[in-house]
Amino acid sequence: MNGGRRRGGFWRDNSLTLAFGGAFLLVLAGQAFAGHAGFNEELATDGLQQLTLGEYLMSSDFAVDVTENWQSEFLQFFLYIFGTVWLLQRGSPESKKLHKAGPESDREQRVGDHAEADSPRWARTKDWRQKLYSRSLGSVMALLFLLSWLAQSIAGTAAYNEQQLRQLQPPVSWGAYLASADFWNRSLQNWQSELLAVAAMAILSVYLRQRGSPESKPVGAAHTSTGVEG
């Protein structure tokens, strides 16, 4: 029995990451094929030579479509991780309990003198390492947002300039593209959808349930129960 558990342990213990990671790759592949077909239709309409799939995957058009979605997702998690330190929603499992707003005490967070034997090594320290580690999740999400935002802006500049040249218009600089309507239209239409999704999840989970999910309260929990997961 223990041997069977060891053999199946990796797939079971990492099934959430593996399932979503695999789905991500499949959807990305689907986007590549669909985007390639759509882009070639535009080229054909303009009387230009079409691209192979490999050429499309290396193009700025594919890069900007991918990175503009990535940066909005990382922005969502960055804001959510830091926002939920202080912001609360009565009755939501997405919120901390109402009396726990703020970074909480060392005892509650099990750091420094209150760390346990199996606590991460940096959680047991009392210097800059603990401060850095205690904010590492949100900081990495912020960094991933900034990097994907930068990649989107660079790829977007290249894609925009390609379109400009097709229309016999002069190209623009990276700085000029950052101030353009095209850049902010791409960014804001993704940001608003992510913020709406977070707000909807926070309030709908007050009244609705999903049995067995840690994103939901237990089915029988009161609507006013806050910070309780199923």
Rank of each mutant, 00 (worst) to 15 (best):
S72L: 10
D61E: 11
Y177W: 07
W70P: 02
W184L: 15
G54P: 10
S136K: 12
L137T: 09
T67M: 09
V206P: 02
L18D: 04
I154L: 07
T52S: 15
G91Q: 11
M1E: 13
P214H: 03
S95Y: 03
F183Q: 05
D13S: 12
N14G: 08
S187Y: 04
R209K: 07
K131Y: 13
E55P: 05
A37I: 13
Q163C: 07
G220A: 13
G35N: 05
R110I: 06
Y80K: 02
Q164G: 04
Q189P: 06
L28I: 04
W149C: 01
V172C: 10
A202N: 06
V27T: 02
H114P: 01
S173F: 14
S95I: 04
D61G: 03
M58Q: 15
V219P: 04
R5S: 11
L196A: 07
A200C: 09
N161Q: 05
L146G: 04
Q192P: 03
R186H: 12
N190R: 11
S187F: 06
L178K: 02
A151Y: 05
F78H: 03
W184A: 13
L178R: 03
Q49C: 02
S92T: 04
H99S: 14
S139A: 14
V172A: 08
Q109D: 13
D106W: 12
E41L: 13
F77C: 03
V64G: 00
L204Q: 01
L98E: 09
Q109R: 15
P214D: 01
A200Q: 07
E162F: 14
Q130R: 15
G54W: 13
L87P: 04
P93G: 00
L195G: 00
T226N: 05
M58W: 15
A34I: 08
S72T: 15
A197G: 08
G21P: 03
Q189E: 14
L48G: 02
R7D: 07
H99G: 06
L43I: 05
Q167P: 01
E162C: 12
E42T: 10
T84R: 08
A199D: 03
G230D: 09
G22K: 01
G22P: 01
S72P: 12
W70L: 14
R124K: 14
E104A: 10
H223E: 13
E73H: 12
D13E: 13
G9W: 15
L28R: 01
A63W: 02
E41Q: 13
A32I: 00
M141V: 08
A115D: 05
S205H: 01
A179T: 09
G4S: 09
L28D: 01
L150P: 02
M1D: 11
W11T: 06
G47R: 06
A29I: 00
G227V: 07
Q109L: 15
V198A: 06
R107P: 03
A117P: 04
Q76M: 14
R110F: 11
A151T: 05
D13M: 12
G112F: 11
L53S: 01
A32M: 04
Q164C: 09
G8H: 14
R209V: 04
A159Y: 03
A197T: 10
K97G: 12
